[in-house]
């Protein structure tokens, strides 16, 4: 029973990681950059939803939609102001800019909402507990896992079937060639950031429904873990992000339950290192052949 309990908790945490990892992996695949500010977009999304619920008295669904809207605008703005001028620059310069952006978001949040942790109010997401035999499953767990599956299927269909999805695949394969074929690369990258940031808002709300303390640094650790999840599954691959996220969550919860609470993070990262050593491009990543 405890085993099943842990498994379900792991799947739920892993689903949150997976949703965040999708944002990382899409941006990496298309813009070829590590968007370190992604974790902080999650935090902003969670704060907006918090304000909507707590101060403005919005119904939960509207609050979540508001958070998604704000994050989408935020993501596109960040991309346009900070990353677009550096499109041709060395990847390290873009990385440092992203890190600066992450500091900036954290400090703006610190100024607006203060350093004291806020308690995320309960919503329909975590209102009930299902009883399944001896198992107690929170509705937050169920909704998180379901949301993950829906997002995953939706994104796969989006990239496979729509015109924009096709453009995304082209840009990720060869940006120069895509541009020559008349694909608007800047717009494609903006749309990618918009989708990733909207997903980050959802992830923020789900994260805070399961772990309700909210402060300006809330996003950084899940952000780093989700990033490792994206690498774990093979960065740039959408099913990879899903698989990596879920596995990482399960490993973390099992590590904490059966080995040591304090070493949970260490175990996650150790597994990551082992996987990368055996399969350097991640679980589902395609090895890149070098051309001379």
């Amino acid at each position: 029973m405890i085993f099943l309990d842990n498994l379900i908790n792991g799947l739920s945490l892993g689903s949150i990681y997976a949703i965040i990892a999708l944002g990382y992996t899409m941006v990496y695949g298309i813009a070829k950059m590590l968007n370190f500010a992604h974790g902080d977009v999650i935090m902003v999304g969670a704060y907006i939803a918090f304000c909507g619920l707590q101060y403005w008295g919005l119904p939960p669904v509207i609050a979540i939609l508001a958070a998604m809207a704000v994050c989408t605008v935020l993501g596109v703005t960040i991309e346009g102001l900070a990353y677009r001028p550096l499109r041709q620059a060395a990847s390290l310069a873009v990385l440092i800019t992203a890190i600066g952006m992450s500091y900036l978001l954290q400090n703006i949040a610190l100024m607006i909402w203060g350093a004291n942790p806020k308690f995320f109010p309960p919503t329909f997401i975590n209102s009930t507990t299902f009883k399944l035999g001896q198992l107690n499953i929170s509705s937050a767990t169920v909704i998180t896992i379901l949301a993950n599956i829906v997002i995953m299927v939706g994104l796969t269909l989006f990239t496979a079937k729509t015109k924009m999805g096709k453009a995304m695949r082209c840009v990720s394969e060869d940006r120069g060639a895509a541009e020559l074929m008349g694909i608007n690369v800047n717009r494609t990258i903006s749309v990618t950031f918009a989708i990733g940031s909207a997903l980050a808002a959802i992830a923020g709300v789900l994260l805070c429904s399961s772990y309700p303390t909210l402060q300006p640094t809330t996003g950084s650790m899940p952000g780093i873990k989700a990033f490792t999840a994206a690498v774990f599954g093979g960065i740039g691959s959408i099913p990879g992000a899903m698989l990596g996220g879920v596995l990482l969550g399960v490993i973390e919860i099992f590590g904490k339950a059966y080995i040591s609470t304090e070493l949970g993070d260490a175990i996650v990262f150790a597994v990551l290192i082992v996987v990368l050593l055996v399969k350097p491009s991640g679980l589902l990543g395609k090895p890149v052949r070098e051309k001379v």
Binding site: A82, P85, L86, A89, T97, G100, M101, Y103, N107, M111
Partner: peptide, 21 residues
């Protein structure tokens, strides 16, 4: 209160100004 904010902005601006062609 603003020093980390200033630090972050300086960091971003320096990167953009030194790397944008």
């Amino acid at each position: 209160d603003y020093r980390m904010l200033v630090y972050a902005v300086v960091l971003i601006l320096v990167m953009i100004f030194t790397n944008n062609p």
